[in-house]
């Protein structure tokens, strides 16, 4: 079986993240880029299939600037076999539509039995790219899974939505997205890090993929919210509960 995992490099959520006021794009200089945790969990799921069946081939696919190659190398050091990097300065301002088209075009050549992604990234939080990729490829999608069983010809799992959970299944080839209910990713070991250097990474450009580079959506303007400031801080000396209730009354919150 061949599994392709979509990974995304994002600004670290543990730091202040910024938008570039001129372009409305993520300011990539403002913080350290990391592999989005949810896509690491997606990779972990693929690697767990490979653990059980060594003939499984796991490739990672990422789109992003030059530095994205570090995220791909990390995925290779964790155990993925190969990488695909969509790298093109013309795609720097890609919106969701363009991103989905680029990823789908790269996947068309990858011949995957199963495509695994995270349910939503921590930066965009759109949670819509996997469904768009699945539509481009004409594949069924099991989105927002809490668990997955990957068989020879089918995939099934428990899907989480607002109303509860559903047992869902689809024939392969198919796509699935994982939620935080999945296992955290393994750490790369020394052997993995050394071996990653020899694993193949293919670089693809927009023209190579045969896609346009003009986004559909535009940012009209953006405004930064002033940071919140601390209010009153009291230390409980037996009357904090009374002060709390007084505060809620004065603020007309009760």
């Amino acid at each position: 079986m061949k599994i392709v995992v979509l990974i995304k490099q994002v600004p670290d959520t543990a730091e202040e993240r910024r938008l570039d006021p001129g372009t409305g794009r993520v300011d990539r200089q403002a913080n350290d880029p990391v592999i989005d945790e949810i896509t690491e969990r997606a990779l972990e799921l693929a690697l767990s299939v490979k653990d059980k069946d060594k003939s499984t081939e796991v490739a990672v696919l990422a789109m992003g600037p030059e530095e994205t190659s570090k995220a791909i190398r990390k995925a290779l050091s964790m155990g993925a076999d190969s990488g695909i990097h969509i790298l093109d300065p013309a795609l720097a301002g890609a919106d969701i539509t363009l991103t989905a088209a680029a990823l789908a075009a790269a996947l068309k050549g990858a011949q995957a039995d199963l495509i695994i992604a995270g349910n939503e990234s921590t930066d965009g939080r759109a949670g819509i790219v996997p469904a768009m990729v699945a539509e481009h490829l004409g594949l069924p999608l099991l989105g927002a899974l809490a668990s997955a069983a990957i068989g020879a010809g089918t995939v099934s799992g428990e899907r989480l939505n607002d109303a509860g959970t559903q047992r869902v299944s689809a024939p392969l080839p198919a796509m699935l997205t994982v939620t935080e209910s999945f296992e955290e990713a393994r750490f790369p070991n020394f052997k993995g890090i050394m071996g990653a250097k020899r694993k193949p990474v293919t670089t693809l450009s927009a023209s190579g993929l045969g896609i346009a580079t003009e986004p559909l959506s535009t940012v009209i303007d953006l405004e930064q919210r002033p940071p919140r400031t601390a209010g009153r801080k009291i230390i409980d000396e037996g009357d904090a509960a009374a002060q709390l209730v007084d505060f809620l009354v004065t603020q007309r919150l009760i």
Binding site: T97, A100, I128, V129, A131, M132, L216
Partner: peptide
């Protein structure tokens, strides 16, 4: 809605009809 099903339906519809998406 930006729900699990709503997002998937919106995403697929956008690709099928060549529409744009504005999310969350």
């Amino acid at each position: 809605a930006s729900s699990v099903d709503g997002r998937e339906a919106a995403g697929r519809l956008a690709v099928r009809t060549g529409a744009g998406v504005l999310v969350d």
